[in-house]
């Protein structure tokens, strides 16, 4: 999951703006990770040397790999061995930002190293043994930055990101929580979770995004908004909230109750007097999914 949070990390450090991030993610499917970025990622060459080789290659009208090999930075065999390896998602995001002229290769490498180092990560793709670090990173990025958010929301979004990776796809980046006074919905499902940490969750999408979301979730291609597309929004929310309740029950002996999910469209959400509404946009290359959290104002209990 660290890879999905890299974009948010760049946001939190004011290295990029939300618009630049959203734009880079939307171009994700058209991004071709350049040989110099691949060589740097697999540590065949440093960012500084890669920039030098790029300059020489441009001057000589040659390609990056041949130039680097001729200059003795690595061998053809070494490059061939890694070039077809699966690349992490954050590299596509990074390449997109490089293509847009927002970051240089060396800056990207610097920020990746800094991100890993700040969060004591061994590898951005290895997270199974780094659960505590991940919890802390989620706290730092999403909860501590929003003092009014209760700490248990950290648990909730940790599972939400995991379920998005599993059921919709790993090519997303979450933006930051935004408080809302009123929110106009397009196609939306919502569900109330009752108990010691009451929460009403909304999942809102526009038509184009809903079609792709449902297609990914169900594994079929939808071309028009029908009852199955609408049901997929309810189903995802219900599945996720159900697993969240199971985890709370198993890990903390907290029993919560779910109301059935409800579908609404073309209306608006206004929080009650005792509630606050926060929007968490999740950006995929096919569009943005908005999750809305309606939370009681006085909630402060920690589950971490």
């Amino acid at each position: 999951m660290y890879t999905q949070l890299f974009g948010n990390y760049l946001l939190s450090k004011n290295i990029i703006t939300p618009d630049q991030l959203v734009d880079a993610i939307r171009k994700r499917n058209d991004v071709f990770v350049q040989p110099n970025t691949i060589a740097m990622h697999f540590k065949l060459i440093s960012a500084t040397d890669a920039e030098y080789v790029t300059k020489i290659a441009t001057d000589k009208d040659s390609d990056f790999i041949s130039t680097a090999i001729n200059l003795g930075y690595f061998t053809r065999e070494a490059y061939d061995e890694v070039k077809d390896n699966t690349l992490p998602e954050y590299l596509f995001l990074g390449q997109s930002l490089i293509n847009d002229g927002i970051l240089s290769s060396s800056k990207l490498e610097e920020y990746i190293v800094e991100y890993q180092s700040n969060n004591e990560m061994i590898d951005l793709e290895l997270y199974s043994d780094q659960k505590d670090n991940l919890d802390q990173l989620l706290l730092n990025l999403f909860i501590i930055a929003n003092e009014e958010l209760p700490l248990y929301i950290g648990k909730y979004i940790n599972l939400l990101f995991t379920n998005l990776i599993q059921f919709i796809g790993e090519d997303f980046t979450p933006l930051n929580f935004l408080p809302c006074e009123e929110y106009p919905v397009s196609l939306c499902s919502y569900q109330r979770i009752n108990g010691v940490h009451p929460l009403t969750m909304y999942l809102d999408l526009d038509e184009k995004v809903a079609l792709e979301f449902a297609s990914r979730y169900v594994g079929e291609s939808f071309t028009e908004i029908d009852e199955y597309v609408k049901a997929s929004l309810e189903d995802f929310l219900n599945l996720h909230n159900g697993i969240y309740n199971v985890n709370l029950s198993n890990e903390s002996s907290i029993e919560m109750k779910l109301d059935p999910p409800v579908f609404i469209e073309d209306t608006s959400i206004t929080p009650g007097e005792k509630e606050q509404l926060y929007m968490l946009p999740i950006v995929y290359p096919f569009g943005t999914i908005n999750f809305l959290f309606e939370i009681e104002k006085q909630e402060t209990t920690s589950l971490f």
Partner: peptide, 8 residues
């Protein structure tokens, strides 16, 4: 068959 397999 449910997503909420909690103890209760």
């Amino acid at each position: 068959i449910s997503s909420v397999g909690t103890q209760s």
